[in-house]
Design a protein around this nucleic acid. Structure first.
Lengths: 214, 214
DNA sequence: TAGTGTGAACAGATTCACAGCG
DNA sequence: CGCTGTGAATCTGTTCACACTA
């Protein structure tokens, strides 16, 4: 076990290891080594070993790692042994797609409600999750102790919706709206701007075509 | 102008500057400084100045940056003065949401076609973009010189679809499927796993609740 | 004189290289 | 012997501090 604090970058890789281990366990693999994990994840083997070592020695020298044991350790360390409770704010195409995706594909996350302000769709269901009016948000957050709010409303409504979320008591916002939200201290905003990511990729089409370095 | 090569991280920030400048220009702001840009983007002022300096001196000492001039420079440097030509592979909820989002909200990107294998939806339109069968992909890629393919198919079909994309001649894949794609050298894959990102956020709910550092 | 532009110091993350153990 | 675990070296990115100039 190392005593240095865990790097941000390691934290981001842990769920990837988890996904990989789930796949291996499904295929009845019960022992892996860092080279195999490297192939599956595209991270280097040394980096993988170092990541694990921040949390203690999970492996067996000369052999590797027992998949189920490693999985349990990562679950504990990430807090994913209990599901992340999530609400989705904004039931447009993106909000619904994100809700569906996580309801059906993400076993570590529980979507408890989707919120919108359009009366025409309140009461509709996304799979088994009800679309509710935003005015019910605080009640739901209290009832289910919501961890994260996914924000996917139109641009003009983003700051107001963000304020609602903060007032409801949610401390972490996963923001898909291309705007810099203004939030109080102690609120963590994780931004993802899909247009920006797509624009960044233009650079690689450059690099690949021309071999240029700018 | 510095002579060191441009960091990856700078490249990722350029589209954010672009978005910010678009907003400022829309509000008829024609001069900004790095402090204002810092407020708008949440990057530090020094970092912003350093980012720009990699491409030459865009500013005026004692004054700041002319928004339109800075915008033009960033457009040139990123290649975004010409639109990024994009196809979407997979017309499920996520694929359609991503297509709509970029058709309506992203002025620097042109979606030319959405592909699927389900005969029931071939020929449908997403706004003004037609859903086509995957067998037409190579033809479309050649005709429009497609830069980027957004991959959003079900897990089991991801590797086959990726092979199709590569064979069609697209060099950059924006992959939303939670799998490590196997691609030849020279193909750039940019992965985004929305479940993984959501799982990572669990860590911050920890940190905020307990003030812990693991 | 206010704000840019940048070398130098610093911080964070990854790779190297090998000691240590099952 | 093989693979883990980890300090040390390296690389990458950010912040500091200040010289510079429109």
């Amino acid at each position: 076990m190392q005593d240095r604090k865990v790097p941000e970058s390691t934290i981001k890789r842990l769920p990837v290891y988890l996904r990989t281990l789930d796949n291996l366990i499904r295929k009845d693999v019960d022992l892996v080594n860092s080279d195999i994990l490297s192939e599956e994840t595209a991270f280097t083997a040394e980096l993988i070993r170092k990541d694990f070592s921040f949390f203690g020695a999970f492996g067996i020298r000369g052999r590797g790692y027992y998949t189920e044991n490693l999985r349990q350790n990562i679950l504990k360390v990430t807090g994913l042994d209990k599901p992340t409770i999530v609400i989705v704010v904004g039931a447009g195409y993106l909000g619904i797609a994100l809700a569906r995706f996580n309801i059906t594909k993400n076993p570590y996350t529980k979507i408890v409600s989707v919120f919108d302000i359009n009366p025409a769709i309140i009461g509709n269901k996304i799979i088994d999750v009800e679309i509710m009016h935003v005015s019910k948000m605080a009640e739901i957050v209290r009832k289910y102790t919501v961890d994260v709010a996914i924000l996917a409303v139109p641009l003009e409504q983003a700051q107001v919706a963000s304020n609602n979320i903060v007032q409801s008591g949610v401390k972490v916002i996963f923001n898909f709206v291309p705007v810099t939200l203004d939030v109080p201290d102690g609120i963590h905003v994780h931004n993802i701007d899909l247009s920006v990511e797509l624009q960044t990729l233009k650079y690689y089409t450059f690099k690949i075509r021309a071999g240029s370095t700018f």
